[in-house]
Simulated assay, not measured.
Amino acid sequence: MFEEIFSPVQKIAFTPFSNLYVKRDDLIDPYISGNKWRKLKYILAKAKAKNKTHLVTFGGAYSNHLVATAAAASRSGLKSTAFVRGEEVKNEMLLLCHLFGMKLIFTDRESYRKKYQLFDIHFKNDDQAYFIDEGGASVEATFGCAEIIRELTETYEHIFCAAGTGTTAAGLLSGIQKQGLNTKLHIIPVLKGASFIQTEIAKYTTLSGHLKLHLDYHFGGYAKTTPELISFIKNFTAKTGVLLDPVYTAKMFYAIHDLTKQGIIGKEEKVLAIHTGGLMGLFGMMDKF
């Protein structure tokens, strides 16, 4: 199912950029989109190598990762179960999970924090169950994300990516180092107070001067927005035809825009933005638009 796929790089015309390019991983698949496809590629390979037939993972009620895991399991002939953080709800994302055959276990927030304990309680007698952390965080996920760099046919002064767990960032940094590039990797954490992401990245790869974290573009925290961010999304999409989600990619593109306006990123420098997909996250924010 995870055959070689090379997502296109598209040049975007949007003031004040002269050389803004986008790696369109959002076009890889409608349900296993962007970095979710990248992360699950080697996770599923490892699960199959261990003869596991039941994927068990974790996420919130609007988690793109849950939809991606459910779709990947269904296409691969595997069972899937998800622990969903919070009270029982119904929404578009969970409907897709249900249609793809995923079993949903709604879990209070305190219990949800103890993921390995939850897994052991529910699946200690299921030797076919395979633990997948929230968001797919794992060393296998970094292998898939590192391939983004290998696919590039041009070099860029700057590469930007949004971050939640730091797994995609670690893969990108590893790829840059392996290719011997001089590219600066700019990471835009979408959580408030996310300096810990540097520590998370260091779990998977050696830190280097290639890496730069920008901690001030979270817009209040994870899945938080402001009228300014929503206005930016509307303007960007109307002028470029590229959809952004408010949780991840919009914050990244806003950061690129702001850093360029400030002169921190030169208007003539080649910038590559990694579009990590996640567009179904728009469903959870319909009232913001």
Rank of each mutant, 00 (worst) to 15 (best):
F6A: 14
F6H: 12
K11V: 02
I12G: 10
F14A: 15
L20G: 08
L20S: 08
K23T: 04
D25K: 03
D29Q: 04
P30Q: 04
I32T: 07
S33P: 10
N35L: 05
R38K: 11
L40R: 00
K41Y: 02
Y42D: 01
Y42N: 05
K46Y: 04
K48P: 07
K48I: 10
K48D: 03
L55D: 03
T57E: 00
T57S: 14
A61I: 10
A61E: 11
Y62W: 15
S63A: 08
A68Y: 01
A71N: 02
G77K: 00
F83I: 05
E87H: 06
K90G: 13
M93P: 02
M93R: 04
L95N: 12
L96W: 01
H98K: 13
L99Y: 07
L104W: 02
F106G: 12
F106D: 10
T107D: 05
D108I: 06
E110D: 12
R113N: 09
K115M: 13
K115Y: 00
Q117P: 05
L118P: 08
F119C: 06
D120E: 15
K124M: 06
D126C: 03
D127F: 07
Q128E: 11
Y130C: 08
I132T: 03
I132L: 12
D133S: 11
G135S: 06
A137T: 15
V139T: 06
C145Q: 07
A146F: 04
I149A: 09
E154P: 09
Y156I: 07
F160C: 15
F160M: 15
C161I: 13
A162Y: 00
T165H: 03
A169S: 15
I176V: 13
Q177V: 11
Q179V: 05
Q179T: 10
I187S: 01
I188V: 15
K192G: 12
F196I: 10
I197K: 05
I197F: 04
Q198V: 13
K203Y: 02
T205V: 15
H210Y: 01
H210G: 03
L211T: 09
L211E: 02
H214D: 10
L215D: 11
Y217E: 05
H218Y: 03
T226N: 11
E228M: 09
I233H: 00
K234F: 11
A238Y: 01
K239D: 14
T240P: 04
G241K: 03
V242P: 07
P246G: 09
A250R: 03
A255H: 00
A255T: 09
I256D: 07
H257Q: 12
H257D: 15
H257M: 11
L259T: 13
K261S: 11
I264M: 12
I265K: 04
E268T: 14
E268H: 09
E268R: 12
K270D: 12
V271H: 01
A273I: 08
I274A: 05
H275N: 14
H275W: 07
G281H: 00
L282W: 00
M286Q: 14
F289E: 13
